[in-house]
Design a protein around this nucleic acid. Sequence first.
DNA 1: CTGCATCCTGCTCGATACTG
DNA 2: CAGTATCGAGCAGGATGCAG
Lengths: 106, 106
Amino acid sequence: MDVALEIVGGKWKSSILYHLDTGKKRTHELRKLIPDITPKMLTQQLRELEKDGIIHRIVHYEIPPKVEYEISEYGLSLKTVLESFCSWGESHMEKIYGDRSAFLEK
Amino acid sequence: MDVALEIVGGKWKSSILYHLDTGKKRTHELRKLIPDITPKMLTQQLRELEKDGIIHRIVHYEIPPKVEYEISEYGLSLKTVLESFCSWGESHMEKIYGDRSAFLEK
DNA sequence: CTGCATCCTGCTCGATACTG
DNA sequence: CAGTATCGAGCAGGATGCAG
């Protein structure tokens, strides 16, 4: 349990995984998709996910640099679990706040 | 997602839920089951779980005091999700460390 | 464009001692 | 037995500036 939490527990990891689910993404694309994340945190969380084998880091040696990230095959096994976890969170949220907008106003 | 993480994210909540799964427990029983937890943290985490509607707090007004905690009906819906999440963590752990003992030595 | 290094802040959690 | 209060440490996370 703790092991699993360490992997998804980072403040931004769920967001990153959520967006990578749509397909391979470049670093800058992720920044736009997650506006509030700082470059540092993005890199840091990506490194951790990579270290855990959840995502792949694909470096293209060009000028300007180009780096892409995608969910690994192993990461896909996590995705399934995360989805059920996430949908529980959603229904819980609705129970508490009535609807999503009320929460976002926080 | 973040909503769900806030609920299970506490350092001890998963342990507490795990033990309460076996049935109603008194405060002191939980302390024995989770030796490293301090009284403060136990109470704090229990209060948060109670606030989120995951567990029930049953107070018996006696001398000496007697308080019991049990998983609520709503908490049961979380349990299912947690179990799949947890078993993913276990298989991940085995992939990384080979087996459990290697992890516990950390 | 991408990523690292540095410094700093805030929150979570731990230790300890105390009340009803 | 159950819970609270206070203090302090550690670490994840934010801001900023620099490098390849």
